[in-house]
Design a protein around this nucleic acid. Structure first.
Lengths: 207, 207
DNA sequence: GCAAAAATATGAACCCGCTCATTTATGGGG
DNA sequence: CCCCATAAATGAGCGGGTTCATATTTTTGC
């Protein structure tokens, strides 16, 4: 057999298995005990490896959280865009997507809060993967704007990526407000995020 | 002499002195070594107190950073609104304010980055003081919107606080992008924040 | 097959944030 | 002026994240 990059080799396979073991162990402990209370030693033990080995798979404890959250985030984003109505007002399509993401965070709000608080400026291999996901998400938001432009709903001179960037900031702000202040999910979505998006669409100008 | 609440008493005076000593020590060390590398022991030593005493004045190391940043932030906000042109386009008045804040962070960008990253959902006595500052800032932004409404520049049906909240999210997003990615100050302000604000004012609608 | 080399894994030890049982300072009442 | 109650300060110790010298496993070259 020829060398098959990383994944195919025996070494690569064991490495993948171990990463998965660690992901599971961390996920279970974070859910059961919360992020702060979970010790890296406990994660290592449940994954059946030595303490030091953990740090060959995640740069630090934060990066472990990113390892765990990456898959959940990816699934939620995929799901959100899969179930997206083909047509309809831009506002409702955005809300459909953001609702799905909020719902994901609401399953374990404390974990979500820890994750979102660490997101800005995070580094480490798994943080990079999450950043890539976020970047792709931003482009998907821009695609929605482009489609709305084709429907004549959005002015043609608006740069889709610029609009996506603004909307993402509004989404992130709402997410922080919700997960920090712990106002209930529905209120955060309908009374905070939705009016913010409405105002971004409307603008401040007269008319 | 009657008891004068907290400030007048000898006890209260010593406490204030000590808080100031700690603030100075932390500020100098954070500047010289950075937030992460500075140990709480070092701060205590330079302030001339025991390790444990530090935590009577700040709940934890994070709260120490908030203690340090509060005054700088307050000064920058005060300064920004003092120097604000009495009239002029809303966009330029916003940019005047945000430029002043960005400039404050740019004096010690690494410290600013640490601070901004810890801001969301921070707790502790000094974090509360910073949150109060942020809340007041939000209201000042809303006041600018209200003035623009009186000038007929902004539609009367727009809720000033809603607009302020959106603009704050855009500001915070730009701040995070700048301090995380370390793109230069001028670009972050003029190529990131300004277009975002322009688009918020303009909206996405046709016309 | 077998060494030498390279990649991985190990866990004791280190560092540092934070706590808490104990000591010290302050101020009011007699 | 002294005593007691209360507030404040102390620093040794603890817990947990992270490191790194050493050991083990896997791959490579022959």
């Amino acid at each position: 057999m020829s060398k098959v990059g990383r994944e195919g080799s025996l070494r690569g396979q064991k490495k993948q298995d171990r990463r998965e073991k660690i992901r599971q162990a961390a996920w279970n402990l974070f859910r059961e005990e919360g992020y702060e209370k979970t010790t890296t030693r406990a994660v290592a033990e449940r994954a059946g490896i030595a303490t030091g080995t953990l740090f060959l798979y995640a740069r630090d404890k934060q990066d472990l959280l990113f390892l765990v959250m990456h898959d959940r985030l990816e699934e939620a984003v995929e799901d959100a865009f899969d179930g997206l109505p083909r047509r309809g007002p831009l506002l409702e399509r955005w809300m459909h997507v953001f609702r799905r993401l909020f719902r994901m965070y609401s399953e374990y709000p404390a974990l979500g809060a820890a994750f979102v608080r660490l997101l800005p400026g995070a580094s480490g291999p798994n943080a990079e993967r999450v950043n890539a996901l976020t970047f792709a998400f931003l482009h998907r938001l821009a695609a929605l704007v482009r489609e709305a432009q084709e429907q004549g709903e959005v002015a043609p001179e608006v740069l889709p990526m610029q609009a996506a960037s603004n909307v993402f900031s509004l989404y992130f702000g709402a997410l922080l407000a919700w997960l920090s202040g712990m106002l209930p999910l529905e209120l955060a979505l309908e009374e905070h995020l939705r009016p913010a998006l409405v105002l971004q669409i409307r603008g401040l100008r007269i008319g």
